[in-house]
Design a protein around this nucleic acid. Sequence first.
DNA 1: ATGAAAGCGCTAACAG
DNA 2: CTGTTAGCGCTTTCAT
Lengths: 329, 329
Amino acid sequence: MERPTMKDVARAAGVSPMTVSRVVAGEAGVAPGTAARVARAVRELGYQRNDNARSLRQKNLGTSAIGLVVDDLANPFYALMARSVEDQAHRRGYVVLVGSTNDDPRREREVIAAFTARRVDGLILVPTIGGHGFLRQPMQRGTRVVCVDRPARGLAVDTVTVDNRAGARRAVAHLLDRGHTRIACLGDRYDIWTQAERHAGYLDALAERGVPADPALVRHGLRSHGETHAALERLWALPEPPTALFTSNDLITLGVLDAPPRPRPVAVVGFDDLPLADRLDPPLTVVSQDPHALGATAADLLFSRIDGESAPPRDVVLPTRLLIRTPRG
Amino acid sequence: MERPTMKDVARAAGVSPMTVSRVVAGEAGVAPGTAARVARAVRELGYQRNDNARSLRQKNLGTSAIGLVVDDLANPFYALMARSVEDQAHRRGYVVLVGSTNDDPRREREVIAAFTARRVDGLILVPTIGGHGFLRQPMQRGTRVVCVDRPARGLAVDTVTVDNRAGARRAVAHLLDRGHTRIACLGDRYDIWTQAERHAGYLDALAERGVPADPALVRHGLRSHGETHAALERLWALPEPPTALFTSNDLITLGVLDAPPRPRPVAVVGFDDLPLADRLDPPLTVVSQDPHALGATAADLLFSRIDGESAPPRDVVLPTRLLIRTPRG
DNA sequence: ATGAAAGCGCTAACAG
DNA sequence: CTGTTAGCGCTTTCAT
């Protein structure tokens, strides 16, 4: 009924706990007959080693656990990232603890504290806007940290992002190429790094073509379809309403597509691809990023740090792609 | 540099480790002055309690960790479930270990073994087709288990599913109502419980209306767009090709929508809702389920078991909804 | 209100 | 090849 320990197995096999330890760890140098007796006792008792106790004693081997802290695990983008991270971790015999921050620095600290209290060997982090000084201590003490999707202000760690600014610039340039000059920019909270970057790319494109930037066309802080719809209403009410929209994340793109139709349709280009985007009428042109590559790269960096790599922090910037979709002929 | 332990804090505060333990655990019965000195030492040394060591000694409190084992974390459906589970766990001070099985019993065993080796207090499991006898031992020894999305053959545990069969029946009945009699059923691997249930619901609807079931119209084992496209080609080549399709999961629905267009369009009803389904032309009617409710219910059941609830295993079956979408007027 | 001793389950380091 | 001793970081139990 109670969980058997190595001592129980040792007694059943007529050996010392140390021998059991060696057999269970698959170490060489145990007589085949002894090993067989131990293995049989393990099977009969249904013994499974307690890996928490193990990692308590083995200071050099770590816990074989990493933490993954994302904005929102339910977001398909982060879910794909998580899956890539998990695959790599599984391959290397690590388990993954996950947590969502909801972009709330307090929750971020709670989640990270819970993870470091369990002595994870590393942390893959989509940082919130909050400060991250509290990570410095754990890092000095051996917890490796990699940021992904966004950098953490003032934290010198490996970071994997996509080129948000260039992606946004190309998207807006595409709209300019099609003759639009009144292009609105709809974004999420401006204090989210990716959103500020994409807005910068929007301005870059306008400046490149000498199109004046009209602040009335820029709306940030859109966190729901309702807020997106309200923002659209205010845009339509302008003396010179926009003829095209640049939507700065997938939720906002969906909000726009979900809004009541306009008499004169507007062109939309969105950041982040959506599953049925190419089946819409008209099909939706988007800036797509590769969440799988983000997760896999972050995991690569983390594990190479865990393996002892000690070069200065690296910034990896992955490209985006502009998927131009035209009505099917 | 090294991580400080309670002993270090004790030395710095001029007390015994036991007093530090009490202060850090927030226990009453420590003199305020002493507590303050300890708290200061904790802050100055940057001490954080090792919760693995803690749970090693505290046998009654458990590890405050649960495991979540899904088919594929990248699937938006499971990602939403995972987020609900994580929210509940966070609220209760638990951490969540996640793993994907890919519907592979071997990987499922590996993931579960890694979790029980770390002595998770509970497991929320989307079981593969494989046997689950290996769970009986850990369960007797205190690991609580709840199944979600599918039952595990021959494992008497709380299980949360949706009414797949009734949902499929209504979807197909809807197509029959619209005059279709040649309705194909496109499914994933038939050994996945939900797929067999949905197929049964498909047959139910046909039987109810006295429409003969033609085995040539049923295709299972579709795991990619390519396989779905191939299945469609064979259907179109039939002497009497189908005029409507029932697609038994979201991946297959997307595969169908992605296929080359037909001269005469076919009606499609899919299991699982998709983000832009209502903006398609024609809009897509679907059977929708609520992954959030699935996850939250499973977590509720698990935590009530962890809290000591010992009633016989319960089966919770959640409803589905048929979202009938018609062209916008 | 505080501390000393013992031990959770395991393994490093050293015998033999 | 196998066992003994000690101790990872913490808490239980019992003193004081």
